[in-house]
């Protein structure tokens, strides 16, 4: 056996000149990147045709390390930008990386409206229940009673159940897994990438630096153990009582349905109204003769 560490094939997907990343030791973002590459290969998609859009926050830094066209936008708005990217060139596979603060607080409106439209985006929401980038403030998905720098005496607000919220808003593929479930997570991202419609994959992730430290889980391992012992797959959860489900993370596909997709319907409408068709608009900014 060679002593050289095995270099993952996934390394070729990274902007190597940007490594090391800014992520803390033990952060769940590394797992998310890995599972994404795995999913991309399973879905037989290529970074040549993937555009990534992200907002502000730790997980929104992910696209910056991946060798693809990437748009690192403003706080909470990546889905709005992604809407423009997708409608500007419907042939592209558009993936959004966002976090709980980005997607559910400041960007909540864009999230539910893109889901309502069933626009063909794959939104991967890395939910670590805390604002990591700004130093550990409470988020709209932080559990009741959890501690953060802005809830020093414990959070009083009820958290959002993002998978349920987005399912209700009209998404056609919704799944939730954690960073300790990399294989089903990869599979869910794959299904999301393949779904022609709005796909939302919620990844429950660990932030040992802020959430862990403030909530008596000092290491990433401890947090991952917690996720492992506190998750229940949907099938099993169905048989459990409300009390039994208290504090549990429910995993699995929440929605997987075939509804008409927005950009496709819009293209059809444009093709109907125009002799040239939408295809004429693709990359039209580079043309002078229109």
């Amino acid at each position: 056996m060679s002593n050289k560490p095995k270099v993952s094939g996934f390394m070729n997907y990274l902007r190597k000149e940007r490594i090391p990343t800014i992520f803390c030791a033990g952060c769940g973002n590394g797992t998310v990147i890995n599972t994404f590459f795995n999913a991309m290969e399973m879905a037989e998609l290529s970074l040549d045709n993937i555009s990534m859009v992200s907002g502000i926050g730790c997980s929104s830094r992910i696209p910056g390390y991946i060798k693809c066209d990437s748009l690192h936008t403003t706080h909470g708005r990546p889905i709005a930008f992604a809407t423009g990217v997708k409608l500007g060139n419907p042939d592209m596979d558009v993936v959004v990386f966002t976090g709980d603060g980005d997607a559910a607080a400041i960007g909540g409106n864009h999230l539910i409206h893109a889901a309502r439209r069933n626009l063909d985006l794959t939104v991967i929401c890395v939910n670590n229940s805390i604002y990591g980038m700004t130093g550990g403030q409470i988020s709209p998905t932080s559990p009741k009673g959890s501690f953060a720098s802005t809830t020093p005496y414990g959070a009083l607000e009820a958290p959002f159940d993002l998978a349920k919220l987005v399912s209700g808003a009209g998404a056609t593929y919704v799944s939730r897994w954690t960073t300790v479930h990399p294989l089903p997570l990869s599979n869910a991202i794959k299904k999301g990438l393949q779904n022609k419609g709005f796909s939302f994959i919620e990844v429950i992730s660990q932030c040992p630096t802020y959430f862990g430290r403030k909530n008596r889980m000092r290491s990433a391992v401890e947090m991952m153990k917690y996720m492992k012992t506190h998750s229940v797959v949907k099938k099993k959860a169905k048989k459990m009582s409300e009390e039994e489900l208290e504090g549990k993370i429910i995993l699995g596909d929440f929605v997987n349905r075939n509804w008409p997709e927005f950009s496709e319907m819009l293209c059809e409408q444009v093709n109907e109204k125009s002799e040239k068709g939408l295809i004429d608009a693709i990359k039209s900014a580079y043309k002078t003769d229109l």
């Binding site: 555009s51 748009l71 889905i79 500007g88």
Partner: peptide, 24 residues
């Protein structure tokens, strides 16, 4: 041959225009 979308607010409207610009 172009597309029109009514967004959920002005913030997302301009965001979408920027996204479309990068799509070409």
């Amino acid at each position: 041959g172009g597309t029109f979308i009514q967004m959920e607010d002005e913030i997302s409207a301009l965001g979408a225009v920027i996204g479309a610009a990068w799509a070409g």
